[in-house]
Simulated assay, not measured.
Amino acid sequence: MVQTDLARLFNVTPDCITYWEHNRSKPQVQHYPDIIEFLGYFPFKLDISTFEGKIKAYRYINGLSQKNFAKNMVIDPATVTRWEEGKGRGPKRKEIEAFLSNFLVNNLNYPID
């Protein structure tokens, strides 16, 4: 597959594909679901046994920024940042962790690298 085909598939420019290939830039999170589907596996190194790993896996699979994840979960974006750094608790943490665990069990269709 040539860069123009990939660019069309991911709805980006061919230059963007070149930058990704040469590590000059990284794909934005909204492109992650398409990349995961194209590759047929989850290319991100995450420990999904941890709360922070579950959050990132969910965000990456769904192409969500921390801000959009926070909005969907009705929490402050700063809370998401702290949680992904392995810090903080918060009253909704147990509820969100249960949701994420259930989601990953039922929707992780690709092996994690």
Rank of each mutant, 00 (worst) to 15 (best):
F69Q: 00
G88Y: 02
I61L: 11
I17V: 15
A78Q: 08
P77G: 03
F99K: 07
V80F: 01
I61K: 00
Y19K: 15
G63W: 05
H31A: 06
G88F: 01
Y110W: 15
Y60A: 04
V80T: 03
F42E: 04
F38M: 10
F42P: 02
P77I: 03
F103G: 06
E97G: 01
K67N: 01
Q28L: 14
T18A: 14
I75T: 04
N106H: 14
R8V: 08
P14F: 10
D34M: 14
K92T: 08
E52W: 00
R93N: 01
A98S: 10
G88D: 00
S25N: 15
K54R: 14
H31W: 06
F38T: 13
N102R: 12
L6C: 10
E84C: 07
E84R: 01
G40E: 09
L9P: 02
K92I: 04
W20L: 04
K92D: 08
A57C: 15
E84H: 05
N11G: 12
E97M: 03
Q30K: 14
P77S: 10
N62P: 02
I17H: 00
Y41E: 12
T4Q: 14
K71S: 03
A98W: 01
Y110F: 14
L100W: 01
E85C: 07
P33A: 12
L46E: 08
L6I: 07
E84K: 04
G86H: 04
P27R: 11
N109R: 15
G88K: 04
D47V: 15
R82D: 05
V12K: 07
V2K: 12
G63C: 10
Y32L: 11
T50M: 12
P77C: 04
V12T: 14
F10G: 02
K94S: 11
M73G: 03
K87S: 04
I48S: 07
H22E: 14
R24H: 15
K71D: 05
E85R: 11
K92W: 05
L100P: 01
Y60V: 13
D5V: 14
S25A: 13
F38P: 08
N23E: 15
V74M: 09
N23G: 13
S65A: 09
Y41H: 15
V29E: 06
A98V: 06
G86A: 05
P111C: 10
N72W: 02
K87A: 02
R24Q: 13
K92P: 01
D76N: 13
V74L: 08
L9N: 09
A70V: 00
A7Q: 05
A98D: 08
I96A: 04
I112Q: 06
N106W: 05
N11C: 12
W83F: 07
L39H: 08
N107G: 10
V80Q: 01
P111H: 13
S65D: 05
A98E: 11
D34N: 14
K67Q: 01
A7E: 10
F99S: 01
A7W: 05
L39F: 08
V105H: 12
P43A: 12
V105N: 15
D34E: 12
N68Q: 11
A98G: 03
T79L: 14
F10P: 05
E95K: 09
E97N: 08
V74Q: 07
F103V: 05
V74T: 06
D47N: 15
I55V: 09
L46P: 03
V12P: 03
R59M: 10
I112W: 05
A98Q: 09
V29K: 14
N109T: 13
